[in-house]
Computed example of a mutant assay.
Amino acid sequence: MTWRGSTSVADRIFACLPYLLPLIAALQFGRFLFQQFPILQLMLVPLLPVLQLYSVLGPFGGLIIFFVLLFAVVRNENISHFIRFNTMQAILLDIILIVSGLVVNLLTKGVQVSLVGETLYNMLFLGTLAAVIYSVVQSVMGRYAEIPTISDAVHMQVR
């Protein structure tokens, strides 16, 4: 749905960029898929510059980018609502992945990952990949990507 005015081409491009954050966070869950299907590693090639940026920023690179996006984009009223909405939605997807990663690490600590664990990892990776692809396609078309529950929370945060 398009509301709060029309979106320019620049707004559409900038609305897609924050979805790199949850996509990179989801890569840790895709390791079993990448082992089973090596051809999927080709999707990492476009992400290499962003991954290098993360490595330059050190172990807190994701956290730094998270706060920059939150305070410089989402809380900035001078940026269009469309960009702020998509940025906040990407941040919430990233938070969900961080919490999921912590829970999975607690459950599998010191234990070899079983078939159930691999399935959980694959589900988290593929679910995030689907949400990111859907959101980017909707953003390119100039529409708000409505992901149940997450978009409701974003609407409450971004005015």
Rank of each mutant, 00 (worst) to 15 (best):
L47A: 01
I64C: 05
V111C: 10
Q112E: 13
T119A: 11
I133T: 06
V137D: 11
T128D: 11
F85P: 00
Q28W: 15
T119Q: 00
L33S: 12
L102Y: 12
Q35H: 12
N76A: 13
F32Q: 15
G62M: 07
G62E: 13
V136Y: 02
R75G: 08
V132N: 07
T119M: 10
L51R: 05
L120M: 03
L102H: 05
V50T: 07
G117C: 02
Q138W: 10
G117E: 04
A130Q: 00
L92W: 15
L69P: 03
V50N: 08
R31T: 13
F32S: 06
M88W: 10
F32W: 11
G61E: 11
G62I: 01
A90E: 09
M123K: 10
S55D: 03
I96K: 00
L93K: 00
L48K: 11
F67D: 05
L57T: 00
L97S: 00
L44K: 04
I83M: 10
V73Y: 15
K109I: 14
P59S: 12
N122V: 15
L107K: 12
V56A: 03
L126Q: 06
V73E: 09
L42T: 07
Q41W: 11
V68K: 06
F60M: 02
L126W: 14
F37N: 14
F37S: 12
L53C: 14
A131M: 08
L92M: 08
F60N: 04
H81Q: 04
P49N: 04
